[in-house]
Design a protein around this nucleic acid. Sequence first.
DNA 1: TATTGACTTAGAGCGAACTCCAGATGATAT
DNA 2: ATATCATCTGGAGTTCGCTCTAAGTCAATA
Lengths: 124, 124
Amino acid sequence: MTISEVSEKYELSQDTLRYYERIGAIPPVHRTKGGVRDYTEVDTGWIELVKCMRSAGLSVEALVQYVRLTQEGDSTLLERRELLNEQREQLMGQLEAIRMAKERLDYKISRYDEALKTGILKWD
Amino acid sequence: MTISEVSEKYELSQDTLRYYERIGAIPPVHRTKGGVRDYTEVDTGWIELVKCMRSAGLSVEALVQYVRLTQEGDSTLLERRELLNEQREQLMGQLEAIRMAKERLDYKISRYDEALKTGILKWD
DNA sequence: TATTGACTTAGAGCGAACTCCAGATGATAT
DNA sequence: ATATCATCTGGAGTTCGCTCTAAGTCAATA
């Protein structure tokens, strides 16, 4: 798969795909003899993982670390689980922050709805 | 309330508090004759709102817009509700992204737990 | 074979959200 | 009054995560 195909499929710019590889957020991508990227399913699997995790707010740095550990082999299994656990905790926190903000927004919106419907403004 | 007290209470640096005010993410804060900030309850209410929304991922720009609209008075009620609704939608999307990432992390972690417990690595 | 178009790298540039700094001014305790 | 400390402003600096540019190389087509 060429970079433009991967870019299309995962809706990530070619620049971003190269960037992720350059900094190590994904392992080195398979290349043709000429040095052109030719993504395998393993490669795109990593892309998908990174896209998923980034969209949830994991830092690029955390992904780089994770990839580095996987490259180092089985001796880092424990460390990798720790890293994933930490990130999981982060996500749980973020989930809670969003839940709270949403609650607050819902309340505010309901007040606006009320005010717009009745024309009466009882503001706090 | 002085800026150092507010900074302490809301765990936001004094620089950040001044920054939020400077760019308009909160309305102008009450001052003493000497020009020193003296936060009222209304002021800290805004601080709390901004902290809540920022921690959930709302952009500073969105908050600036919201504050600007509130300053313009009742004619912007509808526009403000629209803005809050948009932000709410964003949060819902973010919630879903995090849910999905968490699911994936949970699965991966369970695989690591298994591997670490049994010593058997059946990797995909 | 020439030319077009996709791809390559290294490195600079950019927007968001702070964060830090310098120099001035305000508040307080002796 | 003076020393000390907190706070002020304007502006520069930092970090993150891309995004763009330039100049060169690879690949497919006429």
